[in-house]
Structures are given as structure tokens and as C-alpha cells.
Design a protein around this nucleic acid. Structure first.
Lengths: 301, 301
DNA sequence: CGTAGCTGTTGCAATTTCTGCAACGCAGTA
DNA sequence: TACTGCGTTGCAGAAATTGCAACAGCTACG
């Protein structure tokens, strides 16, 4: 909606930190942008940006205004999708914040599933570092967060939560490959390849090991889960993986997976939710229903 | 704020029911107004008004949008006054919905009191019929309601509530004038002048009488409390008045007041509050504090 | 100490957008 | 039938917005 343009301009400046960079992203000249800001400040009777030689930074009034702007934009989105919905076009846009654990295999499947029923919706998936995902809900950058082991759980309105069993990935010729189940102290005898902190799955493994007074000494740490998995091929090294990331094509890579028995209280939880107190756009709310349905089926406990 | 202009236009049309009448109030031509609406509808991809030969009426999409618009406008007001506040200008505007019982004497005093501390704020007091006041909070027409015996109490976030004693007004030569206190059955022997339903004070009187199996037969009914009071001069007729409306200048009119003993449960309550769930502009919130403070002092129970 | 690179700001002219006027078509009403 | 209210549209003028270019200020670097 055009009337929100000025507001979006302000928001963009706050985000980029300078007129020129914001102007570039907005495809207008800095001068035009500048005059709009000056106009708003004149209307309000207060400056909303501090002028530094390095750019613009919102002052206190600006912070208040920007908070309001983000809410307004989000609410307008909601209303638009509400209106689109009742006119039959079941369209809309959904911004999802997620962590590495979910992108690999699990989230794509969910999105694909949802698109079958609602072909007109569009998605944007933001891969976030641990903790970032929840934070990005605050300013309405994202509507939904699907995270493993959330840090700031209190702010989430949880729509699904479930313990995620951890699997140990190894070569199919591995001595442990035939086992029904593994304990952590079974694993420490072999070279370990672990995700780097602050990855959620690493968090769970470390925490479980700590309880057994074991310290995990990985031969390889990486933030690429794919890399770790593939490194297990033709090697004695073990890597780990969440149930949601277990790929059916595992054997193709000459790999097998064996469930790892982690103490219940220490098992990692996968959480899908949105910012507490917010009313989601219809499109996003509908997607959450899909998420809930699918996850309940797959991992019913 | 200028960016809300279009939205305010839409809201005005919804309120007046036609382009031309709205255009007149907005001081623009119907054609300009029309094109703005068409523009918005084009942006949304949906019509928001039904075109009748008698004017424009919002359709379902329009209703949704208008609800949103009213919220946006109110929220922007809030933010503006928030910003104005932190820049030292303790200004703002307050819309108050009230009923006849409060306007007479009580509300002016409160406003005067508040202006002493905050000279820069402006007021608009809307005199409403019983029940209307609460309703007018819904669409943010008013920020605060000060009502006697509210009908739709559930929607109110109550900031003050107190039982209001009822006084009986009579000529100073009246046989009952020297009494310390009156019961309802003392009054029925004399001609009664009562406010008309649905006035709150009438409600209380009727309800109290009903409990005693008495029916009140007024010789005069009116919705002008002033009229009733003045009619008691040099007459045996009794009229009634709430504590908040008792004027100090009563004797000047050769009148006296005697408290009426009404069963506790049936006593009328004066309520000051705002719409549940809404965040008020600072100016309004501050006024409510004044209200609370003043009323607590005057009518502490 | 000067230069290069970044910032926001401003005057001016071109452009885009919005507005008012007048006329039109349509639907109810007397 | 004529009238009165309504929304809509073409067109020309008014108003707001924009881009361009030049400017001034600050910081970092050599």
C-alpha cells in the first residue's frame, strides 16, 4: 500500500544506517529520501534521526516511531491477506526464520506440502544463527520461527514442540552399524565429527555428555551439516543428525543411521511458533496449521 | 500525519455514507475523493465500498479495512503524543465520552483541575446516550468513558469505580428538608420529578423501588436534570441528583439536598475507564490518573 | 596537510501526481 | 416527466515529488 511508503523509507534507513544506502535499495535519490524524512520530522515537530558523519541513527523518538512503523506494516500485511483471503484468492506471503537444522530437508518438504494446497502463496526462508531467529520476530522481519532448542522461548507462542531424537551417522561397514541403539559412551571410542557451537544439536550432545562426565573431543568441527555427514563415508568417524534431517537417500551414500539414546531431559526440542501477542497474516497462520499437522503425524510422541 | 490522509478519507466516507458529504467535510471535491478511493481499491485489487444510488457503503473487505484504519489512526495518535511527551511538550488531545450525569458539574471540574497541571492539552467531551459512550470507544472515536451505571461493562478497563450516593433535592421549606436521611418510601408521599429512562439515575431509583414493591409515579419526567432541579423551587415536588452533581450553590436557588438511603446493592456506580486492551495516548492516560486521584479523594469509600 | 571517500543537504528544473471544474449517466422520487 | 441526489470521467491547471548536480562537513589514510 502506497501510503506506507514514507514509513517504509524510514524503516529502511534505520535498517541500513544511512540515507545513501537506503536510497539505493529503494531506487530513489538520497535527496528525495532526505526531503521525505525532513518532511516527517517537520510534521512531528521533532527530529527522529541523529545525524552523524557516518550516517543516520534513530534517536529515542525515532525508536518509538520505528517500532510503531513495523507494527503498522505488519498489521497492514495481515489486513491485506485477510482481504485477499475473503475474495477467494488464497494468496499471501510468509517469512520464515529458521536454523540450519531445519533447512536441510525438513522445511523444504513442509513448504512443498503446503504449496500443494495453496499454490498462490510465496515464501521467504531466512537462515538464522541460533537466537537470531527469535529476535527477527520482534521487528516483524519474519512471521514464523522454526528452531531447534530456542534460546528465548518465553517470547514464542509455540504452535508445535517435540523432542527430536538424535541419530548417529556412520559408514555402513562401521563396527557400530548393526546396533539397534547407541549410548553416548559407545561413541566416544571413535573419532567424532560435530557441528560447531552454537548449533542446537551440538548443544544437546555436549549437555548430554557433560551429564555423564564425558567431554566430547571432535576430530572435526564444522557448521556445515552436509559436510559432516559426507565425511562419515568410508571412515570410522561418526557424525550426528536430527530425526528431521535424516534423509531417505542415506544408503546411496553408503551410510547408515543408528538412533542415539540421550537422557530424556536432555533431548533437543524442535519448536515452531510466532511472536507472542501478534496476530499473524492468514497465510502465515495457515502455514502453521500445516506445520502442526505434518509434525504431529511424523513425530507423534 | 499526512500519510494517514487516504485512510482518514476512507474512514470519513464510511462514517458519512457518501462521497459528496464526506468530500464536503474534508474540503475537497467529490471527484478527487473518488479517485483516491478508486486508487486504494486498485491497490488492494478489491472493491471496498458497495455503490448504491444513495451513496457508498463499506462491504466486508471495507469493514475489515476500516477497523484496521481506526486502529492505525488511534495508534499513530498514541505514538505522536508519546513523542511529543518525551520532547518536553506535555501536550495532546483527549476525547471523552460521558453521560448527562457527569457533564453537569463533575467533569468540568475535573478538566479544569487537569488543565492547571497540563495547560497544553485539549479536550473534546462527547455527550452520549446511555450505552453509546461505551460503544464509541470501540471505533476509537473516544479515548475515555466516564459513565454512570455502564451497560457494557465487560469491554471497559475500569480505572475508577465508586458507588454514588443519591440525594433528594427539594425546596428549603419542604417538610422533609430537615431530615438527616430519607428512605424511598418517605418520598413517594410527595410529587416526584424523575429523569427519563434510560438515564442511569432513573435506573437506580426504579430498581430500588421495585425491590420495595413500590412503583414510582412521577408527575414530571425529563432528560434535563437542570430542569428537574429548578422545578423543585417553591414546590413540594422532589427531584433527585447524584453526589457528583450536587452543586455548592444549591441554597442560592432556595433548595436543599438530603441523602437518600438506597439499598447498597442497588446503589448506582460511577465508572471511569477505557476500552479493554487498548493502549491510550499519554495525554489520555495522564488524565485518567487525575480522574482516579480526584475521585478517590472526593468519594473514598 | 592534503586528498579521497564517505556522509547529509540544498537550488533548480523536469516530472509525476493530485486536484477542481464541468459535464455526464444513473437511480430513485414526487 | 422533471428533479434531485448519487458516483464517475476528461481535461487543464496546481501542487507535490523527484533527479541532477553541486556543496559542506567529517574521518581515515598516507
Amino acid at each position: 500500500m502506497r501510503h506506507l511508503l514514507v514509513l517504509k523509507f524510514i524503516e529502511k534507513i534505520a535498517r541500513t544506517g544511512s540515507l545513501r544506502s537506503a536510497a539505493e535499495e529503494l531506487n530513489i535519490t538520497p535527496s528525495a529520501l532526505n526531503r521525505r524524512i525532513l518532511g516527517v520530522e517537520k510534521e512531528l515537530g521533532v527530529e527522529i534521526f541523529e545525524r552523524h558523519s557516518s550516517g543516520l541513527r534513530p534517536n529515542l523518538a525515532g525508536e518509538i516511531l520505528i517500532k510503531h512503523i513495523r507494527d503498522q506494516i505488519a498489521d497492514m500485511d495481515r489486513v491485506e491477506s485477510l482481504i485477499a483471503d475473503l475474495s477467494g484468492r488464497r494468496a499471501g506471503h510468509i517469512n520464515i526464520a529458521t536454523t540450519r537444522e531445519s533447512v536441510a530437508y525438513f522445511l523444504p518438504a513442509l513448504i512443498k506440502r503446503h504449496l500443494e494446497e495453496f499454490p498462490a502463496v510465496s515464501f521467504r526462508v531466512n537462515l538464522c544463527e541460533r537466537g537470531e531467529a527469535e529476535a527477527s520476530l520482534q521487528d516483524n522481519t519474519n512471521d514464523i520461527a522454526v528452531v531447534f532448542e530456542p534460546i528465548r522461548l518465553k517470547e514464542l507462542e509455540v504452535i508445535y514442540t517435540g523432542s527430536q531424537p538424535i541419530f548417529c551417522i556412520m559408514s555402513k561397514d562401521h563396527p557400530l552399524a548393526k546396533r539397534e541403539e547407541l549410548k553416548i559412551y559407545d561413541c566416544v571410542d571413535y573419532p567424532l565429527m560435530l557441528p560447531k557451537q552454537p548449533e542446537g544439536i551440538r548443544q544437546v550432545l555436549d549437555s548430554a555428555a557433560e551429564k555423564l562426565s564425558i567431554s566430547l573431543q571432535p576430530i572435526l568441527e564444522s557448521n556445515s551439516l552436509d559436510l559432516l555427514r559426507l565425511m562419515s563415508q568410508d571412515s570410522e568417524a561418526l557424525s550426528f543428525c536430527l530425526a528431521i534431517n535424516l534423509r531417505p537417500e542415506l544408503e546411496k551414500d553408503h551410510l547408515v543411521s543408528v538412533p542415539l539414546d540421550v537422557p530424556k531431559a536432555r533431548a533437543g526440542t524442535l519448536v515452531a511458533g510466532y511472536l507472542r501477542g501478534r496476530t499473524l497474516p492468514v497465510a502465515a497462520a495457515r502455514f502453521l496449521e500445516t506445520v502442526k499437522k505434518e509434525l504431529s503425524i511424523q513425530f507423534s510422541n
